[in-house]
Amino acid sequence: MLTQGFFADFGMNDIWILATASLVAASTAMIGVFLILRRQALIGDAISHSVLLGIVLAFLITDSRSLPVMLGGAVIIGLLTAWLSDTLHRVGKLQSDASIGIIFTLFFALGVILVSLYAGQIDLDQECVLYGEIAFVPFDTIYLGGLENGVEMGPRAFWGIGVVFLIVLVSIVVGFKRLETISFHPNLAVSLGINVVFWHYFLMTLVSMTTVASFDAVGAILVVALLVIPASSAYLLAKSLKAMLFIAVAYSQASVIIGYSVAYQLDSSISASIAVSAGILLFATIILLQINKKRQTYQIPCLIFIVKHQSYILDQRVYHSSE
């Protein structure tokens, strides 16, 4: 009955929301795979926070909210975060997670302060920074050929993340071999003459771009969930990079669908529900794997036990049956 109501209301807006969410989830899942493999989950976390500062600054400087400006601002700040954390780690002799923590909290704090200072001028508020508002995505549409008599092309956020999704996809397809070597054998990559530093910052660029394009839809912090969680689920199951990418994307799409229906039932934030479903899928995977592991570890000892006490067990049976 509930599902009936769900599909009865299903309109164009829901399709746009789902399409946007699924592109966000797919792009973040693919990037997340590399972050998990390269053990850089925390730098992904850091960048997704500090991107806020990039967006706000880009907006204040250029007074425009067009996609290239936002992408530019976010990429610059994202790379700056990665570079500063690394520099602080080397020059300041701090642990690397400590230096990441110091830099991103500062950037995020600055971003929040700017948002509060210019609250009237930016249509960003603290709420939106956190959850994003994917529910409003369909109302901010772009027009081809002028606002007056152009053709409505669909939501702005959808096209933004669409472009980024394509960039991510093409980058991964083109650089697949390199990325594979760098993720699994960083030392080999160095000795093969692959420019590891370039690829590191290239990945950071992709992270920043994905984050900023997802910003409208899911907000800064939930991007982290989508970056890390589906990729971790895939990490538990996959045997190769290609498989991991596909599994991560599959997990992310499943969480979008589950999350959307949960949000519909509870009338809760769509993006938060998507992230929560991703988490629940991960925990379900872990529990299944644990049960499987337990079963496998008990199987052999059980067999040994039976073989050892065979005669005793048989005796018992004889004893019982004679009774």
Binding site: L42, I221, A225, L227, V228, G279
Partner: peptide, 22 residues
Amino acid sequence: TKIKPDAALAITLSFFFALGLM
């Protein structure tokens, strides 16, 4: 599990936060 400490931190952080926001 196979999950590394840094990923565990990020997973916990983002999952709980999402749950809180939800």
